[in-house]
């Protein structure tokens, strides 16, 4: 779950952001709105839903080189609709944005792509599944996927293999985002094994690890009083996984949500208040890069720390996204995303 994408979804109309944002949380302008008890239809739902305002295919991976150095990797494709229709040609109201990043202990490489939807430069097809923008692709049958991205200073080419089932967040994939009831459709494939090569200025590096792919779409994601987001995807050494997010509110309170995932893919959803995330230390530019994360219902009390504190995504709308280590009641690795701090 990447709520900053709700902000980013409005990436283009930077000047229109204020009005767009204000209008977004409350009414849907003819866009379809997520309803409880969703019935997913695969592979169709892996594809695009142009009648919803925003959508993304969001992959993060924790990687390790042969020498043991940890790396983080991100591949994201966002869709943002100006009107609830697919359309054709330059005037099609679907806009696409790609973000790719590689994080090393010392460096953070970022790049961004933008494209119009109606001319074939970017898009997502469900069967066969392919998500692309320019030369970046994420394609395959969801049991195996190939993923590439390139930038002037880095590139990668990775192979993914699913080692578990899809999991659904919230109430069977209906994920509530505020006390007022804003919600999205949200499912993940957190069980990908990943391997491939990172081409970095330091040289080519062969890496292996695991990857977490999020799928989410909605038309009314945030409440008026919500300003930012802290999102955790943690993989523990005992095979359990946990997704948790904390929405920051203007009144100083938070709205939290979590999903506990067993090694074989069984999920336990937790509603507001079950998860507690507390910042422990700030980076030089005032971003909390150490957290205490607690989910008492599962005996979780861990410290989450950034591998590279300077993992800013210097994209159209900046945010922080990078790999983390987990210590405490459970040891492991994971990814952290923070918005609302810029």
């Amino acid at each position: 779950m990447n709520v900053k994408a709700f902000l980013l979804a409005l990436f283009l109309p930077c000047t229109a952001m204020a009005q767009g944002f204000a209008g977004l949380g409350t009414d849907a302008d003819g866009f379809t709105v997520p309803e409880p008890n969703p019935q997913f239809d695969f592979p169709a739902d892996h594809g695009a839903h142009p009648d919803y305002r925003i959508e993304w295919w969001y992959l993060t991976a924790n990687l390790t080189a042969e020498d043991g150095t940890p790396y983080g990797l991100q591949w994201t494709l966002f869709r943002s609709a100006l009107a609830p229709e697919a359309g054709d040609g330059w005037t099609a109201p679907q806009l696409w944005m790609g973000h790719a990043a590689v994080t090393t202990p010392d460096n953070h490489y970022v790049t961004e792509r933008l494209a119009r939807g109606g001319i074939g430069q970017a898009g997502v097809t469900a069967d066969p599944f392919e998500a692309w923008i320019d030369d970046w692709v994420l394609q395959g049958d969801w049991d195996t996927l190939r993923m590439t991205a390139s930038a002037p200073d880095f590139a990668y080419d990775m192979a993914l293999t699913a080692q578990g089932p899809l999991i659904f967040h919230g109430d069977a994939g209906y994920s509530v985002k505020s006390a007022a009831g804003q919600a999205s459709y949200y499912y993940s494939q957190p069980f990908f094994a990943i391997e491939g090569t990172l081409q970095l200025p330091e040289g080519d590096i062969a890496v292996t690890g695991n990857a977490w792919l999020d799928r989410e779409w909605s038309s009314q994601p945030l409440a008026d009083n919500q300003t930012g987001w802290d999102w955790f995807s943690l993989s523990f050494d005992d095979g359990h996984k946990m997704m948790g997010f904390r929405l920051q509110q203007t009144d100083g309170n938070n709205f939290t949500s979590a999903t506990w995932i067993s090694p074989d893919g069984d999920t336990t959803p937790y509603t507001d208040g079950a998860l507690v995330a507390t910042p422990l230390a700030m980076s030089d530019d005032d971003v909390p890069v150490r957290w205490r994360v607690e989910l008492p219902a599962q005996g979780v009390d861990v410290t989450v720390a950034a591998i590279n504190e300077n993992a800013w995504m210097t994209t159209s709308v900046p945010y922080w996204e990078g790999p983390v280590t987990v210590t405490g009641s459970h040891a492991g690795i994971g990814y952290l995303e923070m918005t609302g701090y810029e």
Binding site: P13, C14, A16, L82, W90, T91, P93
Partner: peptide
């Protein structure tokens, strides 16, 4: 209105 600009 960028949205209007982009949609022709």
């Amino acid at each position: 209105d960028i949205a209007a600009f982009l949609t022709g």
